[in-house]
Amino acid sequence: MAKITKSHPSMNVHHAYAVQREIIRMRTAAGAKVIGRKIGLTSKAAQQMLKVGEPDFGVLMSDMLVPTTSSVPRASLIAPKAEGEIAFVLKKDLHGPRVNAAEVLAATEGVMACFEIVDSRIENWDIALQDTVADNASSGLIVMGDRMVDPREIDLAMAGMVLEKNGEVVLTGAGAAALGSPVNAVAWLASALFEFGEGLSAGEIILSGSLAAMVPVNAGDQLRMSIGGIGACSVRFH
């Protein structure tokens, strides 16, 4: 479809989040369950591209979850791109107007390497902030890694990522790409949700933001990413 902001130029980000909430309500009514949240636009480059000064967020649903080493049908997606990220699995609720990094770590059971397969209904990824927010922050699928580790045992900001496509290294990154540290990104999300009267719940998965650029994928592609001290994750497309 064409970008929403073209047909509805007066649409603001609050309208866009209202659209997102309605989409999640419809998906929940159809049987999917909310399993967490994702944070987008955590890098300065992405924020400058969409002319915004802060990240955005979307909702993770049970029908988006894919185990590592799975094979995903390319035809089930529209225009997918892969991002390497660090996922947080919560053991305690996070709720409040000024959540800090220490509170995030205390509430976290463990962190995992993961792929977020982002996707967009907007033609050619020609999006403004309102377009991606309304489209559930361009969420597609989540591919979780092979193990979970205690985030207090590693420096998440310095954790290095290597992403391979079809056996060749195509991107490298580090945790610092996500608002200086993935912990900062989760703290930002919990605080941002408080403004909507919401919070993060124990058991939820939180994707903390991309550690490098997006990688387009097509049928036949195989991706693998590893994050130092955390683990690895892989997915194929057929």
Rank of each mutant, 00 (worst) to 15 (best):
2 A>D: 08
2 A>I: 09
6 K>A: 12
7 S>R: 15
8 H>K: 14
11 M>L: 15
12 N>A: 11
15 H>T: 06
16 A>H: 08
17 Y>F: 10
18 A>V: 03
24 I>S: 05
29 A>Q: 13
29 A>Y: 07
31 G>D: 13
32 A>T: 13
32 A>M: 11
37 R>I: 05
38 K>A: 03
39 I>Q: 00
40 G>Q: 00
40 G>D: 01
42 T>S: 09
42 T>P: 06
42 T>M: 03
46 A>K: 08
47 Q>S: 09
48 Q>P: 02
58 G>Y: 00
59 V>F: 06
60 L>M: 10
64 M>V: 11
65 L>D: 12
65 L>N: 09
67 P>H: 03
74 R>H: 13
77 L>D: 07
87 A>R: 00
88 F>E: 00
88 F>G: 00
91 K>R: 15
92 K>A: 14
95 H>N: 08
97 P>D: 02
97 P>S: 11
99 V>C: 13
101 A>V: 08
106 A>N: 15
110 G>N: 03
111 V>Q: 09
117 I>C: 06
122 I>R: 00
124 N>P: 05
126 D>P: 05
129 L>S: 08
130 Q>C: 14
130 Q>T: 14
132 T>D: 08
135 D>F: 08
136 N>W: 09
138 S>F: 07
142 I>P: 01
142 I>A: 10
145 G>W: 03
145 G>D: 13
152 R>I: 07
156 L>H: 02
156 L>F: 05
157 A>V: 11
157 A>S: 15
158 M>F: 15
161 M>A: 08
163 L>W: 02
164 E>F: 06
165 K>G: 13
166 N>K: 03
166 N>H: 07
167 G>R: 08
170 V>S: 09
175 G>C: 04
178 A>S: 13
186 V>D: 00
187 A>D: 00
187 A>F: 01
188 W>T: 02
198 E>W: 14
201 S>N: 13
201 S>F: 12
202 A>C: 04
204 E>R: 05
206 I>E: 02
206 I>H: 01
208 S>R: 04
210 S>E: 07
213 A>T: 13
217 V>Y: 01
217 V>S: 05
221 D>Y: 04
221 D>F: 00
222 Q>S: 15
223 L>W: 01
223 L>M: 10
226 S>L: 05
229 G>S: 04
231 G>L: 05
231 G>P: 00
232 A>M: 13
234 S>A: 14
235 V>H: 02
235 V>I: 11
237 F>T: 01
